[in-house]
């Protein structure tokens, strides 16, 4: 019987994690990508309405400041890029409030990297190279698949992800054991895509292979650029292995005005939904205004990667102390 003082993972898992981290660092050293550190505790925070954050009080009498634990190191890393760092990577903790489950722990480890001058397809080449090499000595992947969001969505649901036809979406949900989607999603296209993709597409992606889905619908653009040739899609890629979402990459938005607009839209959405107040990162906007070099970047969840490498059923199995024992 395990006691609460003991780690939730085995000692063998600690070794496997150390080995994975060493291999990642060797990979980037060889490619001359600079390892950096950025603050976990910051004055501002991402505005994404779907990410809940932790806030804390910084006591510097007589003043008191509110600081945020970062949901991702993205903004700080982009400020480094704008100041001429060149290609960089970071392995750090990130914090997302309320996220706990078989694949989620509110504190988790991210690998985030940015490649100056890379387009998204070029970054996808490098992602595949890294992931395939990490799996090689454990349970080698059988291949790498690249497919567009529209094609994979069509394949599994028969629906067009880029054109929202409410009646078609409802008919599909009612005839495919997901009738609750109709009341859950109403006329919200992005929400429909979240529900249908996570229930009916994602579980089948990347059977012992790396599946990279690109060309996300524009309504799910986040911090990616809108595609130059097709405004209905965005230059965003997601990684899946055995149905597990592993990472999310962008051809990064460099337009300060558009970034500012997206922040404001998200802040308005947060207010509409009575979500916690955020402080917009004006320093990121200022950095973009000065000039973010053309770059592509991706964040990969290393705890989930370790789960897949070791074929573990739960994130608790790969963490020294999951949140319940932290």
């Amino acid at each position: 019987m395990q006691s609460a003082w003991q780690p939730t993972c085995s000692v063998a898992m600690l070794r496997l994690r150390a080995r994975m981290l060493a291999k990642i660092r060797a990979f980037f050293l060889e490619k001359s990508v600079l390892e950096v550190e950025t603050p976990l505790l910051s004055h501002t925070i991402g505005t994404d309405p779907n990410l809940a954050f932790f806030a804390t009080d910084y006591d510097v009498p007589p003043r008191q400041q509110r600081l945020f634990l970062q949901t991702s190191p993205e903004f700080a890393m982009k400020r480094l890029l704008a100041s001429g760092s060149g290609s960089i990577y970071q392995i750090c903790k990130a914090f997302r409030n309320g996220e706990s489950g078989r694949f989620h722990n509110p504190e988790f480890t991210l690998l985030e990297w940015y490649r100056v001058g890379f387009t998204l397809p070029q970054l996808m080449d490098e992602i595949a190279e890294l992931i395939v090499s990490l799996f090689a000595e454990h349970n080698a992947l059988t291949g790498v698949q690249r497919i567009s969001y529209q094609a994979i969505f069509q394949h599994y649901t028969g629906l067009d992800a880029l054109v929202f036809c409410y009646e078609d979406y409802c008919t599909y949900a009612l005839t495919h054991q997901l009738p609750e989607a109709v009341s859950l999603c109403e006329h919200d296209h992005a929400l429909w895509l979240d529900v249908l993709f996570s229930h009916k597409v994602q579980p089948y992606l990347g059977k012992n292979e790396l599946c990279m889905v690109y060309g996300y619908p524009a309504c799910q653009s986040s911090l990616a650029r809108i595609n130059a040739d097709d405004a209905r899609i965005t230059d965003r890629v997601e990684l899946f292995i055995n149905g597990v979402e592993l990472g999310n990459g962008f051809y990064e938005l460099t337009d300060a005005i558009e970034q500012n607009q997206r922040f404001d839209n998200e802040i308005a959405q947060r207010q509409q939904n009575n979500l916690a107040d955020v402080v917009k990162d004006e320093r990121l906007i200022a950095a973009l205004a000065t000039g973010l070099p053309d770059c592509s970047g991706i964040a990969i969840g290393l705890d989930r990667l370790l789960m897949l490498l070791s074929k573990s059923a739960s994130i608790d199995d790969v963490l020294s102390f999951s949140i319940d024992r932290a």
Partner: peptide, 10 residues
């Protein structure tokens, strides 16, 4: 708990 990295949690 199901949550797309950039989406609604279910």
């Amino acid at each position: 708990f199901v949550k797309p990295g950039k989406g609604q949690a279910f």
